[in-house]
Design a protein around this nucleic acid. Sequence first.
DNA 1: CAGTCCATGTAAGTAGTTACATGATTGC
DNA 2: GCAATCATGTAACTACTTACATGGACTG
Lengths: 183, 183
Amino acid sequence: MIQYILLGFLNYQPMTGYDLKRTLDHSTGHFWHAYHSQIYTTLRQMEKDGLVASQFVMGEGQPDRRTYTITEQGRVHLTEWLSHPLTEATSIKEELLVRLFFSGQRSNESILAELTVQREIHQQKISEYRKMRVEMEEQAKNLPLPSLKRDSVFWMATLKMGTRYEEAYLEWLNETIQTIQEL
Amino acid sequence: MIQYILLGFLNYQPMTGYDLKRTLDHSTGHFWHAYHSQIYTTLRQMEKDGLVASQFVMGEGQPDRRTYTITEQGRVHLTEWLSHPLTEATSIKEELLVRLFFSGQRSNESILAELTVQREIHQQKISEYRKMRVEMEEQAKNLPLPSLKRDSVFWMATLKMGTRYEEAYLEWLNETIQTIQEL
DNA sequence: CAGTCCATGTAAGTAGTTACATGATTGC
DNA sequence: GCAATCATGTAACTACTTACATGGACTG
């Protein structure tokens, strides 16, 4: 999957592994995450496969940079992938739910403490996403390329899903905390 | 993670790999999934580590079965894990959002077709979970062991999160479908 | 002068997926 | 006779995480 994300971003403009890592953190962080080690190794592999090409620039004063550019083959690969629709639901892996499921022997205090910490974390995420949304709406008004206007609709849509998810999570946490307090 | 799930179930009663696979599919399917290959190999590893013990029974007529039992060390391991609360949010990996994020060059029809299929899938999940909920409430009334009454509260809570998630997803899909139709 | 940011990589390990492999019983 | 269910395993691969490793520039 990370391969398609990297291709997707390189399809907008050439970037280094470092740039890609930052971009990922700031724009797809709410639905996909990757460590820099995976990004660098995947880029190397993609270059071998002819999906991207790199050029190394020795920095004078600044650090050296290896800039990756998408190839024609890379564009085809990305377009091909996008043209085959997903026909399944992505499966969820939620550690907190695993823990809660098997919490029968734990004390209410222990569980409530954990859920309360989680509530803070998810509250934090909601306000992050709200901030991101405002920034994105601001950016959408004065885009460098008007061709990105359509793209920004989809970026916004994914952010909305992130927000909805966090809101649902928070509501559930509140409900569950209350249920346990009443036990 | 799968290791703790297996321990969690074996903490209720001895089971075979096959039983565990089915139990997982039916009760934790909405927040964790595993293939039988992973379950069998993990059980073997756990036996080496002394967390479970197995006994092999040649089936006469029926297939052979290897039944796993949790050890005292296994119980300690599980309890230990549960006692250290999660202090981070589990990161999300949603393939559909990746696809949508990079869909700027796709046609509206193509995207709408994909989202419509997803809507059906998630609608399906919601009705599955509603059915599971009714069954679970039924079971909770006449539990074999009254000691499981407390556990069933937590099982129900995880199912509620599953339902909330699917409902949020569905609402978002409807909103997004509408947005794209208006483009 | 300590911490953060910029910048790139490798190595080793864990987790998860897909494919291969087998074989009996039960129900339609 | 064919499909589904019961039942257990291995092999190969892909994906992801954690740790190790380096070093200059800028900021307070």
